Amino acid sequence: MKKKLAIFDLDGTLFDTKDVNFLSYKHALEKYNYKLEYEYFCKSCYGMSFEKFLPKIIKDNKVSIYDIHKLKKELYLSNLGQAKINNHLFNIIELLKEKYFLAIVTTASRKNCIEILEYFRKHDLFDLIISHDDVLHVKPNPEGFIKAMKFFNIEPRETIIFEDSSVGIEAARKSGAGVFCVNKF
């Protein structure tokens, strides 16, 4: 019986999806006559919930951020060729899977999370996926991490979280679990 839990963020940790997300949001926003610059996206949007950054781009309320996000999710699959896999971390996951439950906690949508895992044939590695769709409060709130620990009945002291973004690291620390910061791969 497994008594430990390893939780992984998706974007920036398991996969470099910056270009995938940028292109998907860029094209979704263009449909509504908004522009998105790459540098701005990287600095002010990537790793955050769309509910936090889209209102800063769409200031006139002529279109719903939810409509733009829905279109972004539809465009995501067509841009997956731009994603890069963190092979080193997946090698570690292979070593952990015998003794640890493996979970993903992400601010990404469930749809986009499943798409990238299937694209890279990694879906079957994980015992649980908690996405933006499964929580009321996204990172930096630790709700997703706590929910994963409760699902497996694993204490924070028996949990390690792999994260890359400042909001994700903050949420991981608030959960009481150990934290590994992924900087580059």
Rank of each mutant, 00 (worst) to 15 (best):
K4M: 13
L5D: 12
L5I: 08
A6I: 11
F8P: 08
F8M: 11
F8S: 03
D9L: 14
L10Y: 11
D11T: 12
D11G: 15
D11S: 15
D11R: 13
D11C: 07
D11P: 09
G12D: 06
T13L: 11
F15T: 10
F15I: 10
D16C: 12
D16T: 13
K18C: 10
K18M: 14
D19P: 05
D19S: 13
F22T: 01
F22E: 00
L23C: 15
L23A: 12
S24C: 11
S24T: 10
K26S: 13
K26R: 15
H27I: 02
A28F: 02
E30K: 14
E30H: 11
E30M: 08
E30G: 02
E30P: 04
K31C: 02
K31A: 08
K31E: 10
Y32E: 13
Y32M: 08
Y34E: 01
K35D: 08
K35I: 06
L36M: 02
L36Q: 00
L36I: 00
L36P: 03
E37Y: 05
Y38E: 06
Y40N: 03
F41R: 00
C42Q: 10
C42A: 12
K43I: 03
K43C: 01
K43L: 04
K43A: 04
S44E: 14
S44C: 07
C45F: 04
C45W: 05
Y46R: 03
Y46Q: 02
Y46T: 03
G47R: 05
G47Y: 04
G47I: 03
M48H: 07
M48V: 00
S49L: 09
F50N: 06
F50H: 15
E51H: 09
E51P: 02
K52E: 14
F53V: 03
F53N: 03
L54W: 04
P55S: 13
K56S: 15
I57F: 14
I57T: 14
I57Q: 12
I58T: 09
K59E: 12
K59H: 05
D60S: 08
K62D: 07
K62Y: 05
K62A: 03
K62F: 04
V63G: 02
S64A: 05
S64T: 03
S64H: 04
I65V: 15
I65P: 06
Y66C: 04
Y66T: 11
Y66A: 10
I68D: 05
I68T: 06
I68S: 04
H69R: 06
H69M: 08
K70D: 10
K70R: 15
L71D: 12
K72F: 00
K73F: 04
E74R: 07
L75R: 12
L75T: 09
Y76Q: 06
